[in-house]
């Protein structure tokens, strides 16, 4: 999160947190936590731009 446009990342984080809170309680797999506890999410919505 250390890139230019800090304000947008804050908004994005808030939005993600809101989504997670609303999704409570989450049903996640009981095993293999070590494997998926660090996930990098790459948001790239350019496909959704019209035209």
């Amino acid at each position: 999160m250390n890139r230019p446009g800090q304000k947008f990342y804050k908004i994005l984080a808030e939005s993600a947190l809101r989504a997670v809170r609303i999704c409570q309680p989450l049903r996640v797999p009981q095993t293999g936590y070590e494997k998926w506890k660090d996930i990098q999410l790459n948001f790239n919505p350019t496909e959704m731009l019209k035209g």
């Binding site: 797999p29 494997k35 998926w36 660090d38 990098q40 919505p45 496909e47």
Partner: peptide, 18 residues
């Protein structure tokens, strides 16, 4: 994860639509 049984490495997910 089940399909590929990956040993620890950073998992990247590309979210392009929603």
């Amino acid at each position: 994860l089940f399909k590929f049984n990956i040993a620890y490495s950073l998992i990247e997910v590309d979210i392009t639509r929603g």
